[in-house]
Design a protein around this nucleic acid. Structure first.
Lengths: 139, 139
DNA sequence: CTTTGTGCAAACGATTTGCAGGATG
DNA sequence: CATCCTGCAAATCGTTTGCACAAAG
């Protein structure tokens, strides 16, 4: 678990003003590993009394994505999930319960695949490449 | 390009009633490779006069997915795209223009990666695994 | 004190639903 | 002729926007 000061420092370095709400959103994401939706972050923060409005959570998430502290995870229709783990990694999504788990980059290469297979029954996988296509290479 | 009769046959085999609207949706998807959204299919079908309603296109796409003739492609926030290519394959998405292209399964393995790299400037990629997790293995 | 963030409510866009009438097998 | 599909309109859900006030640097 990260220190408060450390989080504040990271936000400042990225040029974001440190407000209690924005701090809370980022701290929440850093402490959970279930790739929550914006709504889930909101209700987690407001468990007791409302401390953050809906639009603030949305805009905080957007700001955090823009500076690269948070990543969007698009694995289901209709909702956008967020992940404070921005190191390159992959995802496993359970077809039954919908749970999403991180898969370390290295575990997908070569021999380590056994490690993944011992934990999950992998039925299919897909690779999504991002970059620029021929038409856009001139940029 | 597939024959009409062939398409009708496929739909029947899957236990779907062959209506003009459902036929049109599937035929449209089979003839395009740009991974359209539901709205794009709708407006393509209704170019002249309206021939299919919005809700029918949505429910046709759902039915086609359920029987495995069509696949959802989730690569952007907020919209669901559809693909009649249900053979295992991967996707490339251009960061600039948003174009989505299929990548043949084999082209991602070993040496053929060069083929992909010669066409696209790949900046990052992610792998999504689907299956069942430990908690759900009992099913 | 300038700039940026917050919170409310209204707006939005994609998708879903309820339901009556119509077509399919 | 029973079942399933279509089409309309209204509803829903996640997300965005406009704007006045408040807080951060």
């Amino acid at each position: 678990m990260r220190q408060q000061d450390e989080i504040i420092q990271i936000l400042k370095e990225k040029g974001l003003r440190v407000t209690p709400q924005r701090f809370a959103v980022y701290a929440n994401l850093l402490n959970r590993f279930d790739h929550p939706t914006a709504e889930e972050v909101l209700s987690d923060l407001n468990q007791d009394a409302p401390k953050s409005s809906q639009s603030t959570v949305y805009s905080s998430l957007q700001a955090l994505c823009e500076v690269g502290l948070v990543r969007e995870v698009l694995l289901e229709e209709g909702v956008c999930r967020y992940d404070a783990n921005v190191a390159p990694h992959h995802h496993f999504r359970c077809r039954c319960c919908g749970a999403i788990q991180d898969i370390a980059w290295e575990d997908l290469e070569g021999i380590k695949l056994d490690k993944v297979r011992s934990q999950f029954r992998v039925e299919s996988y897909e690779v999504t490449l991002h970059g620029s296509c021929e038409n856009c290479q001139s940029d």
